[in-house]
Protein backbone atom coordinates (compact mmCIF):
# COMPACT_ATOMS: atom_id res chain seq x y z
CA UNK A 1 0.00 0.00 0.00
CA UNK A 2 2.82 2.37 0.91
CA UNK A 3 4.65 1.95 -2.40
CA UNK A 4 1.38 2.32 -4.33
CA UNK A 5 0.65 5.58 -2.54
CA UNK A 6 4.20 6.78 -3.15
CA UNK A 7 3.80 5.95 -6.83
CA UNK A 8 0.54 7.89 -7.05
CA UNK A 9 2.03 10.89 -5.26
CA UNK A 10 4.96 10.75 -7.67
CA UNK A 11 2.61 10.77 -10.64
CA UNK A 12 1.00 13.91 -9.22
CA UNK A 13 4.10 15.78 -8.19
CA UNK A 14 6.34 15.00 -11.19
CA UNK A 15 4.17 17.06 -13.60
CA UNK A 16 4.30 19.99 -11.14
CA UNK A 17 8.09 19.67 -11.04
CA UNK A 18 8.25 19.59 -14.84
CA UNK A 19 6.23 22.83 -15.04
CA UNK A 20 8.54 24.53 -12.49
CA UNK A 21 11.72 23.42 -14.31
CA UNK A 22 10.46 24.48 -17.76
CA UNK A 23 9.41 27.87 -16.32
CA UNK A 24 12.87 28.36 -14.85
CA UNK A 25 14.65 27.32 -18.08
CA UNK A 26 12.42 29.64 -20.13
CA UNK A 27 13.12 32.55 -17.74
CA UNK A 28 16.86 32.08 -18.30
CA UNK A 29 16.44 31.63 -22.06
CA UNK A 30 14.54 34.92 -22.36
CA UNK A 31 17.66 36.82 -21.36
CA UNK A 32 19.57 35.42 -24.34
CA UNK A 33 16.97 36.37 -26.97
CA UNK A 34 18.34 38.99 -29.35
CA UNK A 35 15.32 41.33 -29.54
CA UNK A 36 12.61 42.26 -27.06
CA UNK A 37 9.33 40.32 -27.16
CA UNK A 38 6.51 41.90 -29.18
CA UNK A 39 4.23 42.12 -26.13
CA UNK A 40 6.91 44.00 -24.18
CA UNK A 41 7.52 46.44 -27.04
CA UNK A 42 3.79 47.12 -27.39
CA UNK A 43 3.31 47.58 -23.65
CA UNK A 44 6.26 49.97 -23.33
CA UNK A 45 5.21 51.94 -26.44
CA UNK A 46 1.60 52.22 -25.20
CA UNK A 47 2.67 53.42 -21.76
CA UNK A 48 5.11 55.99 -23.19
CA UNK A 49 2.45 57.30 -25.60
CA UNK A 50 0.05 57.71 -22.67
CA UNK A 51 2.68 59.52 -20.58
CA UNK A 52 3.52 61.85 -23.47
CA UNK A 53 -0.18 62.57 -23.93
CA UNK A 54 -0.57 63.45 -20.24
CA UNK A 55 2.77 65.33 -20.20
CA UNK A 56 4.21 63.12 -17.47
CA UNK A 57 7.77 61.94 -16.84
CA UNK A 58 8.69 59.02 -19.12
CA UNK A 59 11.08 57.55 -16.55
CA UNK A 60 8.22 57.14 -14.05
CA UNK A 61 6.14 55.36 -16.69
CA UNK A 62 9.05 53.01 -17.44
CA UNK A 63 9.60 52.27 -13.76
CA UNK A 64 5.90 51.60 -13.32
CA UNK A 65 6.10 48.85 -15.91
CA UNK A 66 8.79 46.88 -14.08
CA UNK A 67 6.42 44.77 -11.98
CA UNK A 68 4.29 44.01 -15.03
CA UNK A 69 6.93 42.51 -17.30
CA UNK A 70 8.94 39.35 -16.74
CA UNK A 71 12.67 39.12 -16.28
CA UNK A 72 14.92 40.55 -17.90
CA UNK A 73 12.68 43.51 -18.79
CA UNK A 74 12.57 45.04 -15.26
CA UNK A 75 16.37 45.49 -15.41
CA UNK A 76 16.19 46.94 -18.93
CA UNK A 77 13.39 49.32 -17.94
CA UNK A 78 15.41 50.52 -14.97
CA UNK A 79 18.43 51.02 -17.23
CA UNK A 80 16.36 53.16 -19.62
CA UNK A 81 14.82 55.15 -16.74
CA UNK A 82 18.28 55.75 -15.21
CA UNK A 83 19.58 56.91 -18.60
CA UNK A 84 16.74 59.45 -18.79
CA UNK A 85 17.49 60.67 -15.26
CA UNK A 86 21.22 61.07 -15.86
CA UNK A 87 22.57 64.59 -16.27
CA UNK A 88 23.65 64.20 -19.89
CA UNK A 89 20.95 65.10 -22.41
CA UNK A 90 19.35 62.00 -23.86
CA UNK A 91 16.20 61.44 -25.87
CA UNK A 92 13.44 58.92 -25.12
CA UNK A 93 14.37 56.74 -28.10
CA UNK A 94 18.04 56.73 -27.12
CA UNK A 95 17.08 55.67 -23.61
CA UNK A 96 14.94 52.84 -25.02
CA UNK A 97 17.87 51.84 -27.24
CA UNK A 98 20.20 51.76 -24.22
CA UNK A 99 17.68 49.59 -22.35
CA UNK A 100 17.26 47.31 -25.42
CA UNK A 101 13.51 47.89 -25.31
CA UNK A 102 13.14 48.58 -29.02
CA UNK A 103 14.01 46.07 -31.76
CA UNK A 104 17.15 47.12 -33.65
CA UNK A 105 15.18 47.28 -36.90
CA UNK A 106 12.80 49.89 -35.40
CA UNK A 107 15.36 52.27 -33.89
CA UNK A 108 16.01 54.32 -37.09
CA UNK A 109 12.26 54.75 -37.57
CA UNK A 110 11.78 55.81 -33.95
CA UNK A 111 14.59 58.34 -34.31
CA UNK A 112 12.97 59.73 -37.46
CA UNK A 113 9.69 60.15 -35.57
CA UNK A 114 11.52 61.79 -32.68
CA UNK A 115 13.21 64.31 -34.99
CA UNK A 116 9.75 65.41 -36.17
CA UNK A 117 8.56 66.42 -32.71
CA UNK A 118 6.78 65.01 -29.66
CA UNK A 119 3.34 64.81 -31.33
CA UNK A 120 4.67 62.63 -34.14
CA UNK A 121 6.63 60.49 -31.69
CA UNK A 122 3.55 60.02 -29.47
CA UNK A 123 1.47 59.03 -32.47
CA UNK A 124 4.19 56.65 -33.62
CA UNK A 125 4.39 54.96 -30.19
CA UNK A 126 0.62 54.61 -30.22
CA UNK A 127 0.76 52.93 -33.65
CA UNK A 128 3.39 50.50 -32.37
CA UNK A 129 1.26 49.66 -29.34
CA UNK A 130 -1.74 48.55 -31.43
CA UNK A 131 -1.94 44.75 -31.17
CA UNK A 132 -2.67 42.75 -34.31
CA UNK A 133 -6.18 41.40 -34.70
CA UNK A 134 -4.80 37.86 -34.45
CA UNK A 135 -3.74 38.20 -30.83
CA UNK A 136 -2.38 34.67 -30.48
CA UNK A 137 1.12 34.85 -31.90
CA UNK A 138 2.83 32.21 -33.99
CA UNK A 139 5.24 31.84 -31.07
CA UNK A 140 2.38 30.70 -28.87
CA UNK A 141 1.20 28.24 -31.51
CA UNK A 142 4.64 26.74 -32.07
CA UNK A 143 5.30 26.37 -28.33
CA UNK A 144 3.35 23.08 -27.88
CA UNK A 145 5.22 21.60 -30.85
CA UNK A 146 8.57 22.71 -29.45
CA UNK A 147 7.64 21.38 -26.02
CA UNK A 148 6.74 18.01 -27.51
CA UNK A 149 10.02 17.93 -29.45
CA UNK A 150 11.83 18.83 -26.22
CA UNK A 151 10.06 15.96 -24.42
CA UNK A 152 11.06 13.52 -27.20
CA UNK A 153 14.66 14.77 -27.06
CA UNK A 154 14.75 14.36 -23.28
CA UNK A 155 13.41 10.80 -23.47
CA UNK A 156 15.94 9.98 -26.19
CA UNK A 157 18.73 11.60 -24.15
CA UNK A 158 17.77 9.27 -21.32
CA UNK A 159 17.88 6.36 -23.77
CA UNK A 160 21.21 7.47 -25.15
CA UNK A 161 22.87 7.93 -21.75
CA UNK A 162 21.42 5.04 -19.73
CA UNK A 163 20.30 2.36 -22.18
CA UNK A 164 22.33 2.66 -25.38
CA UNK A 165 25.70 2.02 -23.62
CA UNK A 166 24.32 -1.33 -22.42
CA UNK A 167 23.52 -2.23 -26.03
CA UNK A 168 27.06 -1.30 -26.97
CA UNK A 169 28.42 -3.48 -24.17
CA UNK A 170 26.29 -6.41 -25.29
CA UNK A 171 27.40 -5.89 -28.87
CA UNK A 172 31.03 -5.85 -27.82
CA UNK A 173 30.60 -9.09 -25.85
CA UNK A 174 29.28 -10.92 -28.89
CA UNK A 175 31.84 -9.28 -31.17
CA UNK A 176 29.34 -7.10 -32.99
CA UNK A 177 30.31 -3.67 -34.22
CA UNK A 178 27.39 -1.44 -35.03
CA UNK A 179 28.88 1.96 -34.21
CA UNK A 180 29.36 2.51 -37.93
CA UNK A 181 25.73 1.72 -38.71
CA UNK A 182 23.94 4.82 -40.11
CA UNK A 183 20.98 4.45 -37.76
CA UNK A 184 23.24 4.36 -34.70
CA UNK A 185 24.98 7.53 -35.87
CA UNK A 186 21.58 9.22 -36.25
CA UNK A 187 20.63 8.18 -32.75
CA UNK A 188 23.85 9.61 -31.36
CA UNK A 189 23.27 12.92 -33.15
CA UNK A 190 19.60 13.25 -32.24
CA UNK A 191 19.69 11.89 -28.73
CA UNK A 192 23.23 12.50 -27.54
CA UNK A 193 23.83 14.07 -24.15
CA UNK A 194 24.13 17.51 -25.80
CA UNK A 195 20.81 17.29 -27.63
CA UNK A 196 18.99 19.30 -24.93
CA UNK A 197 21.48 22.14 -25.14
CA UNK A 198 21.35 22.07 -28.95
CA UNK A 199 17.57 22.33 -28.78
CA UNK A 200 17.77 25.33 -26.41
CA UNK A 201 20.23 27.10 -28.74
CA UNK A 202 18.03 26.38 -31.78
CA UNK A 203 14.98 27.82 -29.98
CA UNK A 204 16.88 30.96 -28.93
CA UNK A 205 18.13 31.53 -32.50
CA UNK A 206 14.69 30.89 -34.04
CA UNK A 207 12.84 33.15 -31.60
CA UNK A 208 15.45 35.90 -32.02
CA UNK A 209 15.21 35.73 -35.81
CA UNK A 210 11.42 35.76 -35.66
CA UNK A 211 11.27 38.73 -33.28
CA UNK A 212 13.57 40.65 -35.68
CA UNK A 213 11.69 39.67 -38.83
CA UNK A 214 8.19 40.42 -37.51
CA UNK A 215 9.03 44.14 -37.10
CA UNK A 216 10.69 44.32 -40.53
CA UNK A 217 7.34 43.38 -42.03
CA UNK A 218 5.55 46.26 -40.27
CA UNK A 219 8.13 48.95 -41.06
CA UNK A 220 6.34 50.24 -44.16
CA UNK A 221 3.12 50.87 -42.22
CA UNK A 222 4.97 52.56 -39.36
CA UNK A 223 6.87 54.80 -41.83
CA UNK A 224 3.51 55.76 -43.34
CA UNK A 225 2.19 56.58 -39.85
CA UNK A 226 5.14 58.92 -39.28
CA UNK A 227 4.45 60.79 -42.52
CA UNK A 228 0.72 61.02 -41.79
CA UNK A 229 1.08 62.29 -38.23
CA UNK A 230 3.84 64.73 -39.28
CA UNK A 231 1.65 66.19 -42.04
CA UNK A 232 -1.32 66.45 -39.70
CA UNK A 233 0.79 68.18 -37.04
CA UNK A 234 1.90 70.76 -39.59
CA UNK A 235 5.53 69.71 -39.92
CA UNK A 236 7.06 71.16 -43.13
CA UNK A 237 7.70 68.69 -45.94
CA UNK A 238 11.42 69.57 -45.94
CA UNK A 239 11.69 68.47 -42.32
CA UNK A 240 9.78 65.22 -43.01
CA UNK A 241 12.06 64.49 -45.96
CA UNK A 242 15.15 65.18 -43.85
CA UNK A 243 13.91 62.99 -40.98
CA UNK A 244 13.12 60.07 -43.28
CA UNK A 245 16.30 60.47 -45.34
CA UNK A 246 14.57 61.45 -48.61
CA UNK A 247 16.70 63.81 -50.82
CA UNK A 248 15.55 67.41 -50.19
CA UNK A 249 15.39 68.14 -53.91
CA UNK A 250 12.30 65.92 -54.07
CA UNK A 251 10.71 67.19 -50.88
CA UNK A 252 7.07 67.02 -51.95
CA UNK A 253 4.59 64.90 -50.02
CA UNK A 254 4.07 62.64 -53.04
CA UNK A 255 7.77 61.94 -53.43
CA UNK A 256 8.20 61.38 -49.68
CA UNK A 257 5.30 58.90 -49.73
CA UNK A 258 6.78 57.19 -52.81
CA UNK A 259 10.18 56.94 -51.10
CA UNK A 260 8.46 55.38 -48.07
CA UNK A 261 6.71 52.81 -50.26
CA UNK A 262 3.29 54.48 -50.57
CA UNK A 263 1.96 55.39 -54.02
CA UNK A 264 -0.34 58.21 -52.87
CA UNK A 265 -0.56 61.94 -53.54
CA UNK A 266 -1.94 63.47 -50.31
CA UNK A 267 -2.47 62.85 -46.62
CA UNK A 268 -6.09 61.68 -46.94
CA UNK A 269 -5.13 59.10 -49.54
CA UNK A 270 -2.27 58.00 -47.28
CA UNK A 271 -4.67 57.57 -44.34
CA UNK A 272 -6.99 55.41 -46.48
CA UNK A 273 -4.04 53.40 -47.81
CA UNK A 274 -2.72 52.87 -44.27
CA UNK A 275 -6.08 51.65 -43.00
CA UNK A 276 -6.48 49.27 -45.91
CA UNK A 277 -2.90 48.06 -45.50
CA UNK A 278 -3.50 47.31 -41.81
CA UNK A 279 -6.69 45.49 -42.77
CA UNK A 280 -4.80 43.47 -45.41
CA UNK A 281 -2.02 42.72 -42.94
CA UNK A 282 -4.59 41.43 -40.42
CA UNK A 283 -6.20 39.29 -43.12
CA UNK A 284 -2.81 37.84 -44.09
CA UNK A 285 -2.21 37.18 -40.40
CA UNK A 286 -5.42 35.14 -40.18
CA UNK A 287 -4.49 33.11 -43.28
CA UNK A 288 -0.93 32.60 -42.01
CA UNK A 289 -2.29 31.34 -38.71
CA UNK A 290 -4.61 28.88 -40.47
CA UNK A 291 -1.71 27.57 -42.58
CA UNK A 292 0.52 27.41 -39.54
CA UNK A 293 -2.04 25.43 -37.55
CA UNK A 294 -1.94 22.80 -40.31
CA UNK A 295 1.83 22.84 -40.73
CA UNK A 296 2.83 22.95 -37.03
CA UNK A 297 1.80 19.36 -36.19
CA UNK A 298 3.68 18.20 -39.28
CA UNK A 299 6.85 19.68 -37.79
CA UNK A 300 6.54 17.04 -35.10
CA UNK A 301 6.63 14.33 -37.73
CA UNK A 302 10.25 15.17 -38.62
CA UNK A 303 11.95 14.27 -35.30
CA UNK A 304 9.57 11.35 -34.82
CA UNK A 305 10.43 10.06 -38.32
CA UNK A 306 14.18 10.48 -37.77
CA UNK A 307 14.11 8.83 -34.35
CA UNK A 308 11.86 6.03 -35.59
CA UNK A 309 14.24 5.40 -38.48
CA UNK A 310 17.20 5.44 -36.11
CA UNK A 311 15.72 3.06 -33.52
CA UNK A 312 14.17 0.56 -35.95
CA UNK A 313 17.17 0.79 -38.28
CA UNK A 314 19.37 -0.05 -35.33
CA UNK A 315 17.24 -3.04 -34.35
CA UNK A 316 17.27 -4.34 -37.94
CA UNK A 317 21.05 -3.89 -38.07
CA UNK A 318 21.44 -5.90 -34.86
CA UNK A 319 19.21 -8.69 -36.18
CA UNK A 320 21.12 -8.78 -39.49
CA UNK A 321 24.43 -8.87 -37.66
CA UNK A 322 23.22 -11.71 -35.42
CA UNK A 323 22.05 -13.67 -38.47
CA UNK A 324 25.43 -13.17 -40.14
CA UNK A 325 27.14 -14.26 -36.93
CA UNK A 326 25.12 -17.46 -36.71
Amino acid sequence: MKDTLAFLMLLTLVPVGVVCVVNAVWAVMRAFMAGPAAEAVRLVAGRIAESMHRVQAIELALEGLRPLLPWPYPRRLQKAADALRANRPITTVEALEIGRLLPATMVPLAKSAERLGPTVLEHWFRSVSVPPRVRVSIGRRIAPVLLTIAAIVLVMMFFSVFIAPKFELMAREIDLDFTGVGAWAWLQILAGPWAGLTLIIIVIVLVSLWSRWRWVMGRRILRGEIILSAVRSGVPEDAIAAALGVPRANASLTSICHAAGWKVADADALAIALASSRERSDRHGVVLMAVFEIVAPLLLAIPVLLLGRAVFGLLISIINSLENLS
Binding site: P15, V18, N23, R140, L147
Partner: peptide, 11 residues
Amino acid sequence: SSSYLLVRPVL
Protein backbone atom coordinates in the same frame (compact mmCIF):
# COMPACT_ATOMS: atom_id res chain seq x y z
CA SER B 1 -2.32 31.97 -21.75
CA SER B 2 1.49 31.63 -21.51
CA SER B 3 1.31 29.29 -18.54
CA TYR B 4 -1.54 27.33 -20.09
CA LEU B 5 0.76 26.46 -23.00
CA LEU B 6 2.66 24.22 -20.62
CA VAL B 7 0.00 23.29 -18.10
CA ARG B 8 -2.47 21.97 -20.69
CA PRO B 9 -0.14 19.34 -22.24
CA VAL B 10 1.07 18.36 -18.77
CA LEU B 11 -2.49 17.79 -17.57
